[in-house]
Each structure stands twice: as C-alpha cells, then as structure tokens.
Computed example of a mutant assay.
Amino acid sequence: MSERVEIVEVGPRDGLQNEARAISVTEKVRLVDALSLVGFRRIEVASFVSEKWVPQMAGSGEVLGAITRVSGVRYGALVPNMRGLEAALKAGADEVAVFASASEGFSQANINASIAESLERFRPVLARAREVGVPVRGYVSCVTDCPYDGLVAPEAVARVAGELRTMGCFEVSLGDTLGRAAPERVDAMLGAVLERVEARALAGHFHDSFGRALENVSVALGRGVRVFDASVAGLGGCPYAPGAAGNVSSESLAAFLEAAGFEHGLEIERLRAAADVAVGLWEADG
C-alpha cells in the first residue's frame, strides 16, 4: 500500500480570516459542512482571537455549535490565551491550536508580545487543555521570511518549535506565512528543526504567494513530514502579512500527492463541491 499523508483543512479559519467582507455564520457553517463530507480527519473551523483585530472570526462559537459534526473528524480552533481556550472548550472544539512566531517583528505585530512572552502565555493553556483531554497543536509563523525582520534564521525556528513541542503540543505546524520560501531555505529550516522535533510531530503550512508551495511540500516530504495544511480553493492570507496569498489549495495538494504515489484519503468529487462553495464566497466578496 502507498504511504499515507494527511491533509489538514484550514480554509474555514486561515482561509476566511482575510476576506474583505463579513462572512456570516450561515456561510461558514455551509462551508464546514461541505468539507466534513470530503474525508478530512481534521478541519480548523474557528478562531477565538479578538474580533476587533480579526473581525472575520466573529461568531466562532456559533459556528462550532451549528455545524453538522461527522464521526471521525476533529474540529479545531485557534486560541491565543486562556480566555480563548475556555471559549473554545465551551463551544465544543475537539482540538485547539496556539500560535507563536519565529521572528520578533511578526510576534509584536500579530499578538503585541515578544516570542518569549507569547510562549509563557501558552503554558497555562497547555496545562488546562491537558486537564480536560483536548489535544493542542502549535503553529510557528514566518519560518523563512518575516514582513518586518526579513530573513529568519533556521535556528530561530528550531528554538520556538522545540519549545512548543516540549510544552506539550502534539504537533508543530511550520508556516511559510508570506509564501516566499524557496525550497533550499525550507530544507535548511527543516534540518535545524529536526534536531529538536521529530518528523512525525511536524506539519508543513505553505502559502502559495509565488507558486512554490508544492515545491516546498516536496522538500518536506523528503525530510519525512507527512502532514500538511491546505485551504480549499486556495482561500487565505494573513492580516499581518501584507501581500501573502492563500495556503496551497487542498485540491492541488491532493493531486500532487496522488501523482507522487501517496494516499490522502479524500474524496475528490466532494472536495470539488466544497471548493465550489468556497469560490461562491470569493465571488460574493468581489
């Protein structure tokens, strides 16, 4: 049998957070429900960050309460602190994610805290999640390039990824937030990270601003990474990373993995149907 690679669908959260118009709870639920039928094991649905700073994530609790949950699918939420965690738990999130940056400039712009301060905020979050049996994923932003600090040293990424793993994150997702990463720099970054975090606990999160996301996926596959984030129809971008395009599209990633001889477990026709829903949101936005 072919080796399995998991695609984590992040479109309803990372994909929608940068849309220009307000996306209603009903529209978000419709997208998540379409994605739930595709075969994803994990779908990132919500974000309990400040609605003042990321207004597209308003109504996250309502979304988690209104979706039609499918057995075998974990529905996740991004949380910045204890308050966000408690809100996510109340809404029924099956998994939560915390997020740090490998660059000080992005950390300050994104969460108004240094890297060290952000990591300290997460310690009680991890402890509380452990108490209630909810798994915690860790994100590291700007793993090769920062819009404020420029090039990011591989060792800086390794330090943050190692801290998140030691803290108790079951998985650390490495984010090329700007989509500028070149394969050779991704390889160097992964080489440093793998000295601190085992490949089975890593995920790749590649934006496709310059059309190199799949090249970077290939590099990560070669390094033993077997989990990748993707966004249906390539939705996405980051409010604090000007010019960043969406994540690599789930459809493109699935096709790429099939061509490379990997299994992904997704039903392509249902994925296309979900992409049509996502494109409808785009068209309404434009």
Score class of each variant (00 low, 15 high):
residue 69 R to G: 01
residue 61 G to I: 13
residue 110 N to A: 12
residue 236 G to S: 14
residue 168 G to S: 08
residue 153 A to C: 10
residue 95 E to Y: 07
residue 65 G to I: 02
residue 2 S to Q: 10
residue 155 E to D: 14
residue 277 V to I: 14
residue 139 Y to L: 07
residue 256 F to A: 12
residue 278 A to S: 07
residue 278 A to P: 01
residue 171 E to W: 05
residue 146 C to W: 08
residue 208 D to K: 09
residue 85 L to K: 09
residue 101 S to P: 03
residue 265 G to E: 08
residue 21 R to V: 15
residue 281 L to C: 10
residue 58 A to K: 15
residue 14 D to E: 15
residue 69 R to H: 05
residue 178 L to R: 03
residue 123 R to F: 00
residue 235 L to T: 11
residue 82 M to F: 06
residue 227 V to C: 07
residue 283 E to C: 09
residue 259 A to H: 11
residue 228 F to N: 03
residue 271 L to I: 02
residue 167 M to I: 07
residue 29 V to P: 09
residue 134 V to G: 14
residue 90 K to Q: 14
residue 140 V to R: 04
residue 264 H to Q: 10
residue 8 V to I: 15
residue 263 E to C: 09
residue 227 V to M: 11
residue 69 R to W: 04
residue 188 A to R: 13
residue 52 K to N: 12
residue 202 L to T: 00
residue 234 G to Y: 04
residue 146 C to K: 07
residue 33 D to C: 10
residue 101 S to Y: 01
residue 207 H to L: 10
residue 270 R to S: 10
residue 178 L to A: 11
residue 65 G to E: 06
residue 177 T to M: 06
residue 257 L to C: 09
residue 189 M to T: 14
residue 155 E to H: 04
residue 97 A to Y: 02
residue 237 G to I: 05
residue 1 M to K: 13
residue 131 E to H: 01
residue 248 V to K: 09
residue 63 V to Y: 08
residue 218 S to P: 00
residue 103 S to K: 01
residue 227 V to Y: 02
residue 6 E to C: 01
residue 180 R to V: 08
residue 74 R to Q: 15
residue 9 E to G: 01
residue 81 N to I: 08
residue 68 T to I: 09
residue 92 G to I: 02
residue 208 D to H: 06
residue 30 R to A: 15
residue 31 L to D: 02
residue 2 S to N: 13
residue 209 S to Y: 12
residue 56 Q to L: 14
residue 248 V to F: 05
residue 40 F to Y: 14
residue 169 C to N: 05
residue 201 A to V: 02
residue 118 S to Y: 03
residue 88 A to N: 11
residue 64 L to H: 06
residue 247 N to S: 12
residue 209 S to G: 12
residue 198 E to V: 13
residue 88 A to R: 10
residue 48 F to L: 10
residue 13 R to S: 02
residue 13 R to N: 03
residue 212 R to V: 02
residue 64 L to F: 05
residue 214 L to H: 02
residue 49 V to T: 08
residue 184 E to R: 14
residue 228 F to Q: 03
residue 283 E to K: 15
residue 169 C to M: 05
residue 124 P to D: 08
residue 167 M to F: 10
residue 221 L to I: 10
residue 219 V to K: 09
residue 278 A to T: 00
residue 48 F to C: 03
residue 178 L to W: 01
residue 236 G to L: 14
residue 184 E to M: 04
residue 59 G to D: 11
residue 179 G to E: 00
residue 72 G to D: 11
residue 165 R to D: 09
residue 126 L to R: 13
residue 125 V to Q: 11
residue 279 V to S: 09
residue 114 S to N: 10
residue 59 G to L: 13
residue 177 T to L: 05
residue 272 R to G: 07
residue 167 M to G: 12
residue 233 A to I: 06
residue 219 V to F: 05
residue 151 L to I: 07
